[in-house]
Measured scan of single mutants.
Amino acid sequence: EPLWIRPDAPSRCTWQLGRPASESPHHHTAPAKSPKILPDILKKIGDTPMVRINKIGKKFGLKCELLAKCEFFNAGGSVKDRISLRMIEDAERDGTLKPGDTIIEPTSGNTGIGLALAAAVRGYRCIIVMPEKMSSEKVDVLRALGAEIVRTPTNARFDSPESHVGVAWRLKNEIPNSHILDQYRNASNPLAHYDTTADEILQQCDGKLDMLVASVGTGGTITGIARKLKEKCPGCRIIGVDPEGSILAEPEELNQTEQTTYEVEGIGYDFIPTVLDRTVVDKWFKSNDEEAFTFARMLIAQEGLLCGGSAGSTVAVAVKAAQELQEGQRCVVILPDSVRNYMTKFLSDRWMLQKGFLKEEDLTEKKPWWWHLRVQELGLSAPLTVLPTITCGHTIEILREKGFDQAPVVDEAGVILGMVTLGNMLSSLLAGKVQPSDQVGKVIYKQFKQIRLTDTLGRLSHILEMDHFALVVHEQIQYHSTGKSSQRQMVFGVVTAIDLLNFVAAQERDQK
């Protein structure tokens, strides 16, 4: 057995438009009618409502009807409940999964919650491996369901041993009777949507819809739904939504950006999952974080739909894509998950301010006199920076000697690579993860907040409520011999709460 199987392995699926269902090699399930009293909570997966979006479509000038398939009504709160249950049931049916076995899954959280929910009911041990950027709410729900959680670096490539995929496979090879159901490759993922989600949409719309818009992560949702719609409703256009920084969209030119990270969760990847059939997507749109969270908040405030950030991405694209539809036509959007997962993220004004998705003037509360002053007023001194090749031991000596707790790590040209902190280095040394002679590049981390000289002290204040420091950066445009230009970030300084307090105190003292 291989040590790991690539999540982007070539698909062996034989589905073709027009091929009889009787030739399918898979076990198919028909939607079942729910009894009045459910035998367990797993029976509350599927049969989610279709809700008309009344205000947002009109606000953006849509002539067509805009409908939302509300997947956050599933038992675990997301569309991923469907595939989690289906993968477990299919693994039980073919004898792969037996009582007492362990389920391991690399996930952005929602599939993990679905699997942990099913594992709690069915009696399996469950280990979820997820990147650090995923919300604390997801972690809390997983723990409450009895799952064990392993976190991995957000910026690790999918084929790196440190990625959530790599760590999951390492655990599988170490733990007896453990299984990775593997949402990236498992046919049960798109089949769950082909058999149930798509049929529900067709039934709820009486077979009449002209466009379907869905955000894409593993691709199982859009693949399964689109294949069924292509068979039953061939005139329906399928629109895929991919965040900026991901590479799922086609044509490839759409993916060209210097951005590699994004805040919206559960969609987009740096590889093409095996289950994603991009041939059934008629057109791709890219979405960005700001519009995703703005539209998610709009869905909550104006439509009462308590959905997550990827739902915002989907609707932001839908109001663009559906401009081509006329009166009497219908566009369906998939709202994948609930706001429950993001209470401390985009639902929080403070978080939105820190990330730059909300401006101070958007909030009406009274601010102190210094709130709208610029960061450049602080008069920061030149920063202490270190090269990635310097040793951890030497870096600790320098920081202690100069009285700093942290320093930016830059390359020879001064471009920011990340940050090192005294606390992080000492804990890594004590844990045996690094040696004093190791290069400081081994303990770089990139989960820090950046701020510009033109940003306000109010925004800085919000950042420092949650973080010990902020890195002050400025952009530099560099022209190359080819005539092309590129933008790079340079370090201007490091600012802490002490710097802000000293500035405010000094100004008030001078005024007296």
Rank of each mutant, 00 (worst) to 15 (best):
S437Y: 10
V332Q: 05
L254F: 05
I444C: 12
R400H: 09
K442Y: 10
T344E: 06
G458W: 10
T391W: 01
G304L: 05
K442G: 08
Q435T: 15
H474R: 04
V339S: 05
T454S: 04
K320M: 11
M490P: 14
V472F: 11
T395L: 09
G414D: 08
Q447I: 10
A301D: 12
Q450C: 15
R452Q: 01
Y479V: 11
P436M: 08
L471N: 13
S485Q: 01
E244V: 10
L430W: 08
F357W: 07
E263A: 12
L453E: 15
N255A: 06
S428P: 13
N288S: 09
K402R: 13
Q354C: 04
M419W: 10
L358S: 01
L471I: 15
Y262R: 01
Q326S: 15
F503D: 04
Y262H: 01
L254N: 10
D270G: 06
H372D: 14
E265Y: 05
G268M: 01
I463S: 08
D282R: 14
T496R: 07
E412L: 11
A316Y: 14
E258Y: 07
E361A: 01
K355C: 06
E252T: 13
T257C: 08
Q511C: 09
A321M: 11
W369P: 15
E465A: 07
V281D: 04
D411Q: 01
G393L: 11
Q447D: 11
K359A: 08
T260L: 01
L501I: 09
C392P: 08
F357M: 01
K320G: 08
N255G: 07
K320W: 01
L306I: 05
I396L: 12
S246I: 01
Y262E: 03
Y262P: 06
V420M: 14
I390H: 14
V241W: 04
Q435L: 12
Q256Y: 10
V420D: 05
F295T: 09
K355P: 01
D289M: 05
N424E: 08
P436S: 09
S461P: 15
L429N: 13
G403A: 07
V473P: 07
K320P: 01
H468C: 01
K320S: 12
E303V: 09
W351L: 05
K320F: 09
A470I: 01
E401L: 04
H462F: 12
L384I: 04
L276S: 04
L358Y: 05
T454V: 14
K345W: 01
D405R: 08
D411A: 13
C307E: 01
S437V: 13
E397L: 10
I238A: 01
W284T: 01
K449V: 05
D282K: 13
V443H: 01
T294N: 05
L373R: 07
K512F: 08
E327I: 01
I416N: 07
A407M: 04
D349F: 04
F293G: 01
W369F: 07
G493T: 14
T257S: 12
T496S: 12
V281Q: 06
G423W: 14
Q376N: 09
R488E: 14
L399C: 09
P243F: 05
A296I: 04
L353A: 10
A470L: 11
Y479R: 15
Q354V: 05
M466Q: 12
T482A: 12
E324V: 13
V332M: 14
G268F: 01
G268H: 01
E324Y: 14
G309C: 01
Q406M: 01
I239M: 15
A301H: 07
H462A: 13
C392F: 11
L501S: 04
T261V: 07
A296C: 08
V375P: 01
V241R: 01
Q447M: 10
F492S: 12
P436I: 13
H468K: 08
I247C: 04
D349R: 01
A316V: 06
C392T: 12
D349V: 09
K355A: 07
D270P: 07
A407I: 14
P336R: 15
A249N: 04
H394T: 10
N255S: 07
F346G: 01
G418N: 07
R509F: 13
F295S: 13
D270A: 01
T260A: 06
K283W: 10
I239Y: 08
L457R: 04
Q487V: 11
H480S: 09
M419P: 11
F492Q: 15
L387D: 09
V491A: 13
F503M: 14
G441D: 13
M490V: 14
L380F: 01
L460V: 13
L422A: 15
T274P: 05
T389L: 09
A413R: 10
Y342D: 04
H394Y: 12
S437D: 01
G245V: 06
E360R: 10
G308S: 01
V386R: 07
V495G: 12
F271L: 04
L429F: 11
K484E: 11
I498F: 08
A413Y: 10
F293A: 04
G493M: 01
L430A: 14
D337S: 06
V410Y: 13
S437P: 05
A292C: 09
V332C: 12
T482C: 09
V281C: 15
I416M: 14
E397R: 15
G393C: 13
T274L: 07
V494P: 01
S313I: 08
D438M: 12
L457A: 01
K366M: 11
E265G: 01
Q256T: 07
E365R: 12
Q478M: 09
S428M: 05
V494A: 08
F492Y: 12
N424M: 11
T294L: 01
K345H: 01
Q329F: 08
E290G: 13
Y479N: 11
R509G: 14
W369Q: 05
F295Q: 14
N288V: 07
K355D: 03
V434D: 14
Q447A: 14
E377M: 15
L500Y: 08
F503P: 11
K402L: 12
R350S: 15
Q450F: 13
T279D: 01
G393P: 08
L335I: 01
E253G: 11
D349C: 07
T456Q: 01
Y262I: 01
V504L: 07
I398A: 11
G312L: 05
V317S: 01
D499C: 08
Y262L: 03
V333C: 10
K366I: 14
G356D: 01
A505R: 01
K345A: 05
D277S: 08
Q487C: 10
L306V: 04
S428C: 13
G240Y: 01
E263P: 01
E412S: 10
T279V: 09
V410D: 08
V241C: 12
D455S: 15
I238E: 01
